[in-house]
């Protein structure tokens, strides 16, 4: 049931250009929160990128809730790392919250376990 709802949410997001489940547009807090979908294909990726860029423009660090990621991909991880570069250039952070085992394994398999630690540490920091 949860998967169905998540997939419905992604579809709704794609249709509305607001794919980001959990994004609270207009959130007054300095750190945005964003829930990564369970699956991220290339089409979804472009929408995630747009949303990340939108947050960046707003000058907010962002915490990506990665607990629901079931089928991670190189493209998704590359996108997160690309965002981290851009956010870092503006002294902002991209943090990963509760990354799923699948995402952790993907980071490790890609030889990016150090990057995963950096992203999760960004969340743990006060």
């Amino acid at each position: 049931m949860a998967t169905v709802l998540t997939e419905f949410g992604i579809l709704w997001g794609i249709l509305t250009r607001r794919v980001l489940l959990g994004v609270r547009v207009g959130d007054p807090t300095p750190i945005g929160r964003f829930e990564l979908p369970s699956t991220a294909d290339l089409a979804t990726m472009r929408d995630i990128k747009a949303a990340l860029a939108e947050r960046l423009e707003a000058g907010q660090s962002i915490h990506l809730d990665a607990s629901q990621v079931e089928e991670p991909s190189t493209a998704l991880i590359q996108l997160i790392e690309s965002a981290a570069i851009s956010y870092g250039a503006r002294d902002l952070q991209v943090g990963l919250v509760s990354p799923s085992d699948a995402l952790c394994q993907a980071y490790e398999d890609l030889g990016l376990f150090g990057a995963l630690m950096t992203r999760t540490a960004a969340v743990a920091e006060p």
Partner: peptide, 24 residues
């Protein structure tokens, strides 16, 4: 033992998600 080369990942604005910029 996998070593990733990530220096070619562009900034978000320049990133084309359909192209992989990481090598190993």
């Amino acid at each position: 033992s996998v070593e990733a080369e990530v220096s070619k990942i562009p900034a978000l604005a320049e990133l084309d998600p359909s192209v992989c910029h990481i090598s190993w």
